[in-house]
Write a protein that binds this DNA or RNA. Structure first.
Lengths: 233, 233
DNA sequence: TATTGTATTATGTCTGCACATAATATTTTG
DNA sequence: CAAAATATTATGTGCAGACATAATACAATA
């Protein structure tokens, strides 16, 4: 008696997941090969493959050619988190988004920024510091450096009505980037801007992007105290 | 003259990415349908579909039946990050991992934990507090509550030689969970445990897991100051 | 024995075709 | 004219069969 009928790849995935969750297949175990599973489930191998690939992407299975497929020893390792545009994030909380430019300066890259991007120290860059508000409460302090030569037309944008990130996202695509999350104590300046007490713990995102080998931006996002980034597993 | 020959789905993906990055297709634009692209690239529709689905998963494209496929307005929104087992994370940094149990108690769920998990306050639970070291420096303070009835055999495990997370991951699979990242100031107790100054900003992960509808664990991971979580985009 | 070559095997991917499904566009109907 | 029925269209998914590729096992060779 079959509890669940198996037709599509999603049901194959569900059945395989069930066997993992119910410990019929233990972590580290080799699971039957695709041909056998296809026969057992009465579907084509391509269908099994689709399901297994999906589970491997999710981190539940580990697959290697010839070696076969085995249940991952550590099924918890991948979390996909969405990095929203600040305006949308604020609005999604039912608050009004507002944005203020604190500074906008065309200058050359300071050493820290230049070395981070692998650029000479005299590279002309645009430095933009701004504050995002949610219902007139400070929400995010953004400190951004943009490689002017990598982003055509950026000098003509005032960023008064649109946020730099949003403009860049739509006008300066990048091929690769890295992002890191950390915690920091607010400096006196940050505390004042974010209306927090000095030393309060804040969540910080540092992001750097490149277009091919050309550095585009480096930005530090300092969120007001209490910010949480959340995702489902 | 074609610069790159198109054979597999990866090259289709690369070519589509190129068109997005080089702004041949602008954010919001509708792109040609699969049949047309398949003909243009000289591959089967399934191959185009594979490539497009992959790009949609990555957040670069948005697809809807009948409506077609368009370039995402916000190509930056998904970052996949790996949540490693602490032991491996420490060892990967070339340090020696060590682990000490601070407390191990079978008791009933306190209100905060019970409500978070949706359990009655008198549910029997296992409370484990422990410290992870990297080269004898405190690395992570772990405060964990486990629903005893959801994890068979947990009462017999001492966790002296294996970390609770690692044991659970291999012995108590879960079907869903959620995870959140935030920053916090150390309490006096945490500061002492982590050998940090009181109030230092620390990176905190809160994770809750369920097996179907049954809550399994809730855990708070407090990393020593300076911890960064990093990923590529 | 150590190394190199060869067969085997499981996954990776492609093709061509078919039908399913969801969302939009169009026509019919009250 | 508005609401309901129907057609159209692009993506979603299925199948069977084929060949490609990587990793392993095993045999042959120096």
């Amino acid at each position: 008696m079959k509890v669940t009928e198996i037709n599509g790849w999603q049901s194959v995935k569900a059945e395989v997941m069930r066997r993992i969750v119910e410990r019929i297949w233990l972590p580290g175990d080799l699971v039957p090969n695709e041909v056998d599973l296809a026969e057992e489930f009465g579907v084509a191998r391509a269908t099994v493959n689709r399901a297994m690939r999906d589970l491997a992407d999710a981190g539940l299975l580990e697959r290697r050619r010839k070696a076969g497929t085995r249940v991952a020893l550590n099924p918890t390792r991948k979390a996909t988190l969405e990095i929203p545009i600040t305006r949308l994030e604020v609005e999604q909380r039912g608050a009004i988004w507002r944005h203020a430019i604190l500074e906008r300066e065309e200058t050359v890259a300071p050493v820290v920024v230049a070395s981070r991007l692998g650029l000479p120290v005299d590279t002309p860059m645009l430095h933009v510091r701004s504050l995002h508000y949610a219902n007139s409460h400070p929400f995010l302090y953004e400190d951004r450096w943009v490689n002017i030569s990598a982003v055509k037309g950026i000098c003509d944008v005032s960023f008064q009505s649109i946020d730099a990130n949003e403009w860049l996202v739509q006008n300066a695509t990048f091929t690769r980037g890295d992002i890191s999350f950390s915690a920091a104590n607010t400096t006196a300046q940050e505390a004042e801007l974010l209306e927090a007490s000095v030393g309060a713990a804040i969540f910080v995102i540092d992001r750097t992007t490149w277009n091919g080998d050309i550095p585009v931006t480096v930005v530090r996002l300092a969120y007001a105290p209490g910010y949480r980034m959340h995702t489902d597993l």
